[in-house]
Amino acid sequence: MFKNRRVFAYILSEIVPSFLLGVFIFICVLLMFQALRLTEFLLIHGIKWTTMVRIMGYMSISFLPLLLPMSLLFAVLLTYNRFSQDSEIIAFKSSGVNPWSIAMPAIAFSLFVTLVSSQTSFYLAPWGNRQFEVLINRLGNTKAAASIKEGTFSEGFFDLVVYSNKVNSQTGVLNDLFIYDEKNPNAPLTIVAAEGQIIPDTTHPGHSVLLRLFNGQIHRKGESHTVINFNTYDVLLNDPIRLEEKKKSPSSLNLEELLTLRKSNEDITPEMRKDYDIEYHKRSALSAACFVFGILGLAFGIVTNRRSGKSSGFILSVGFIILYWVVYLSFESLVRSNQIPTGIGLWLPNILFTLFGLYHLKKVWD
């Protein structure tokens, strides 16, 4: 590497722009799969464009652990495939550049991306995912009427079952309401009302939602059946005094939180501990996949009999990405069904693809 610094810098200058291009392309592709969800936020919830940008930003950050290995494979394959197509690999060898010096830029950059990916997987991506969860939760409370569908029973609406014949998601007005509340299983409530309106707290958006009902009845079933008629009745859906922060999902936990929960013996069921173990090894394996994909890109990029280096490099990268995820998800399903240990199952795809890449790389150099 030090004897051929110009070669190293030249190859690296080709890999880095392709890598950044790959990150941009794969972010756009993944956001396209979320287009329907984003459209719902924009049209039904009526959120501002600045909030939409924040949502897309948090989603992109949470996608990074998946994007970095794919982008690295795309960059290395595209770069070395073009070198092979333009006979630059042959020119390097003819000039006395040994194979190790040719491969070193890809290996060094793969190690660097692996380090960045590990920090991203355990800190940046969980932060982005958590910010996304909190923002969506607040939007759901602020635009609560948008989660109620006309003519259907909406379950999970602040732990209530709600039915409304007509819903205006912009004004929050509901007509012909039926509400079933079983928060107290010994005395469940059934509320019917001619009209209702969802009134969010504009001073603290997302922290308090008031449902004001007009002209209805409250039926309480306990030891005796009680009926209460009302002209106006307020239901506080989210009390800011009692509001507790929503518990973090496994994908929103950073490294220290994951390690603590994996070792904790308090209020952790075997299923939850299994989820934490899978999340820890999954992030570690995805970070290491950057180096694995770098080896694969190097092994299959150095060829001399392709018509189009760019097109074949892109096709190969997509093919390897699909194949890797098929293998990975297959092993993950075996892990979740307790057929193989967590650590072994989630790391086996990396081991298999590394051996495959090294074997093919040896054949190319020979």
Rank of each mutant, 00 (worst) to 15 (best):
Asn4Asp: 07
Arg6Ala: 03
Phe8Asp: 09
Leu12Gly: 08
Glu14Arg: 06
Val16Cys: 04
Pro17Glu: 09
Ile25Tyr: 07
Ile25Met: 14
Cys28Gly: 15
Cys28Pro: 00
Leu30Pro: 01
Leu30Arg: 01
Ala35Trp: 13
Thr39Gln: 02
Phe41Ile: 05
Ile44His: 08
Ile47Tyr: 05
Lys48Met: 03
Thr51Glu: 13
Thr51His: 01
Met56Phe: 02
Tyr58Trp: 14
Leu64Thr: 07
Leu66Val: 13
Leu67Val: 15
Leu68Trp: 07
Pro69Arg: 10
Pro69Asn: 10
Pro69Cys: 07
Met70Gln: 07
Leu72Pro: 02
Leu72Gly: 05
Leu73Ser: 09
Phe74Thr: 10
Thr79Trp: 07
Arg82Gln: 14
Ser84Pro: 01
Gln85His: 12
Asp86Val: 02
Ser87Tyr: 11
Ile89Trp: 06
Ile89Pro: 03
Lys93Ser: 11
Gly96Ile: 05
Pro99Tyr: 14
Pro99Gln: 09
Phe109Met: 13
Leu111Asp: 06
Phe112Thr: 10
Thr114Ile: 02
Leu115Asp: 00
Thr120Tyr: 02
Phe122Arg: 08
Tyr123Pro: 00
Tyr123Asn: 13
Pro126Lys: 02
Gln131Ile: 01
Val134Trp: 06
Leu135Asp: 03
Leu135His: 05
Ile136Pro: 00
Asn137Asp: 15
Asn137Lys: 09
Ala146Tyr: 04
Glu150Gly: 14
Gly151Arg: 12
Thr152Glu: 11
Phe153His: 09
Gly156Gln: 10
Gly156Ser: 10
Phe158Gly: 00
Leu160Asn: 06
Val162Gly: 05
Asn165Lys: 15
Lys166Thr: 11
Val167Thr: 07
Gly172Ser: 11
Gly172Glu: 10
Asn175Gly: 02
Asp176Tyr: 08
Ile179Cys: 08
Asp181Leu: 08
Lys183Ile: 03
Pro188Ala: 03
Leu189Tyr: 12
Ala194Leu: 11
Ser208Tyr: 01
Gly216His: 06
Ile218Glu: 14
Lys221Ser: 14
Gly222Ala: 13
Glu223Asn: 15
Ser224Arg: 12
His225Pro: 00
Val227Leu: 15
Tyr233Leu: 12
Val235Thr: 04
Asp239Ser: 11
Asp239Asn: 15
Pro240Cys: 06
Ile241Asn: 11
Leu243Ile: 04
Leu243Val: 01
Lys247Trp: 01
Lys247Cys: 00
Pro250Tyr: 11
Pro250Lys: 08
Leu261Gly: 12
Thr269Ala: 07
Glu271Gln: 13
Glu271Trp: 05
Lys274Cys: 02
Lys274Ala: 12
Tyr280Ser: 04
Ser287Leu: 06
Ser287Thr: 04
Ala288Pro: 00
Ala289Leu: 15
Cys290Thr: 03
Phe293Glu: 04
Leu296Gln: 04
Phe300Glu: 07
Thr304Cys: 00
Arg306Gln: 14
Ser308Arg: 08
Lys310Asp: 03
Ser312Arg: 12
Phe314Cys: 02
Ile315Phe: 14
Phe320His: 04
Leu323Met: 14
Trp325Cys: 01
Val326Lys: 02
Val327Met: 12
Tyr328Ser: 03
Tyr328Leu: 09
Leu329Gln: 11
Glu332Asn: 12
Ser333Lys: 15
Ile340Leu: 11
Ile340His: 04
Pro341Arg: 05
Gly345Phe: 08
Leu348Asp: 02
Asn350Leu: 06
Phe353Cys: 05
Thr354His: 03
Leu355Pro: 01
Gly357Gln: 08
His360Lys: 12
Val364Tyr: 01
Trp365Leu: 15
Asp366Gln: 14
